[in-house]
Every structure is written in C-alpha cells, then in structure tokens.
Computed example of a mutant assay.
Amino acid sequence: MARFALGVEYDGGDFLGWQRLSKPGVAGDETVQQALETALSFVANTQIDTICAGRTDAGVHAACQVVHFETDVQRDPRGWVLGATSRLPPSVSVRWCVPVADDFHARFSAVARRYRYRILNRAVRPALGRQYVTWERLPLDVAAMHAAAQALVGEHDFSAFRTVHCQAPHARRDLQSITVERSADEVWIDVRANAFLHHMVRNIVGSLIPVGRGEQPPAWVAELLAGRDRNVAGPTAPPTGLCFLGPVYPGLFGLPDEVSA
C-alpha cells in the first residue's frame, strides 16, 4: 500500500462542510469529503477513503486542506491531481499530490492549523467576492481588536468560544498567535493554534467585533476567556468570511513549503 498526501482547495459555499455524512461509496448529502472521495475512487477504479487535517463547517472555505489516503493502485502524483480534479465540481480542486511515508497522518502529524477571517469594513455591502467576506458597515478599531485578541495567546480553556455541540473531550487549546490588521477596506484576523474547537474561530471573531465597534473594552475578551461561559460571549460570526489556510507539518515529511514548518 502506498500513502499519498493531497493539498485541496475549495469554496465551501456549496457544501454542508467537510465531513462525509453517509457511508463510503453511498450517495448522500454533498460534502467536500464525499466529492473528493468520489473523484479519487473514479481515478483508482476502487473505493478511496480520506483523512483530513481538520474538518471545516458548512460554508467555510479552504486554501490548502491536507488529506492523506492509502491505495495499492498505481498512479503517479500528476495522475491523481489531474484525474481527481477533472471529476470534481468547479468549487474544488486538488492542487498537489506528494507520496509520503507510512507514519505520516494528515491529522495527527500536524503541529499547527491556520485560519484567516476576512471582514469587509465599509458602509456599502459588497457585490463582488461577497461569498468570501463578512460585511460590517460600522467602522472597526483594528488596534483595539488586536490588543484584545492577545489575551487569547497561549494554552487556555476556550470554553467561552466553543459551540455547545462541540464534541471535543476538553476545551484546552494552545493558541500560538492571533493578529488583526487592516488592508484597505478589509480587516483580516489570522489565527494559528495546535488545534481548534467547533466554531472557535468564528466565536472569537464574534467577540472581537463588539470591541472594534467600541461597544466593549479590549479587556472584555480576557474576561470572557477567564469566565468560560459561552452564553455571555459574542455571537458566532458567519462562515462566509472564514478560510482554512492549511495545517503545518514538520519539514521531514517533505510536503510543499506552504504547509511545512
């Protein structure tokens, strides 16, 4: 059996999230995993099952989701890339394929995961690219948002920022960095952590926006973190502005630079 890693890009707007909702090989509600496995299985002429670096919710996009699969079918990396992409909908493409060692695991080998949340901050709603941003018409104080966010850096219990439906056994995560910066009319919130809870990034963003509007002081985010109460934190930000930039792996696995430490 050979093991391959794939870099997959997708627009999550047409999908119910990453995770396959039906059994392998059985038609069901459309998810990114279902679409990808159907395409790979066509190329292999046998069922291919995939494991991803991190599941994304409905409507969330990915610049470089990483998956791995095993097969005894002989195809070169270019064949997997072009063959699978030709069978995928226009909103999904396989960007690269790399043979990896048997000890590589898309989920467990990752040392970090990175997300970017984009907010279009102007008085008028967007017409172009509206599926990739969240619109906020009130001016946002980016410096205040960035200062507030720094209280989240480090290993903490993020119960205040997890959904009640989160299935993780505990809420402790190591948030390695978070930055809030402006680029013209857009505000970018970049977050890197060892792993994320369900809706964690969107709930953090939903609590930073009131700080940006001046409705809450920057110290409020630290209070939310310490209080561990989801009910008093900000609302869950919409999925449209969120993009999974990709995981990070040790360089020894020989993956492309964009996902290597």
Rank of each mutant, 00 (worst) to 15 (best):
P90H: 00
T71S: 08
Q131A: 15
Y117E: 01
V221F: 13
A148N: 10
H146S: 14
P210R: 10
R213M: 04
M145L: 12
M145G: 06
P250L: 11
G17E: 04
P250F: 10
S22H: 14
S159G: 13
K23E: 15
D157P: 05
L197I: 02
A171W: 06
A151I: 07
D49S: 15
F253Y: 15
S86R: 13
H170Q: 10
F158K: 08
S93P: 00
Y132R: 15
F108W: 09
W80Y: 12
A112H: 01
L82W: 12
L128D: 01
L208K: 06
T31V: 08
L140N: 11
T163C: 15
Q176I: 05
R162N: 08
E30S: 12
E181F: 14
Y10N: 05
A143H: 14
P217I: 03
T71I: 00
E136P: 00
L88E: 00
Q131R: 15
Y249W: 08
S93N: 05
A171Q: 09
L16P: 00
L88H: 02
A233W: 08
G227Q: 12
C166R: 09
G214R: 02
A44N: 04
G12D: 08
D11K: 02
P217E: 00
A53N: 03
P89C: 07
Q34G: 13
Y132G: 08
I178N: 02
L252T: 10
G7V: 06
D29E: 14
G13F: 00
R78N: 12
T236P: 05
S177C: 07
V133W: 05
A143Q: 15
N45G: 13
W220Y: 09
A149I: 11
Y10S: 10
T50A: 11
D72G: 11
S177Y: 03
L138V: 14
A171E: 07
H61V: 04
R55H: 07
V221Y: 03
A63N: 06
L21S: 09
A160R: 13
L255N: 01
S86P: 03
P250G: 13
G7P: 03
G234H: 02
F253W: 15
C52S: 13
A84T: 09
R78A: 13
R230S: 07
I48T: 06
H68G: 00
D174N: 13
L245G: 07
A193S: 09
A233R: 10
G214V: 04
M1V: 13
D29T: 09
W220H: 13
P239R: 07
T134S: 14
A261L: 14
G13Y: 01
V142D: 10
V187R: 02
L16D: 10
A222R: 12
F42M: 11
A184C: 04
D229V: 07
Q167E: 14
G28W: 00
A261K: 08
A148P: 10
V232S: 12
G254H: 01
R125Q: 13
V43Y: 06
G212T: 04
C52N: 09
A84K: 09
R173F: 04
V67P: 02
V111I: 15
T46H: 10
W18F: 15
G227H: 07
V43N: 03
S22F: 03
L88S: 02
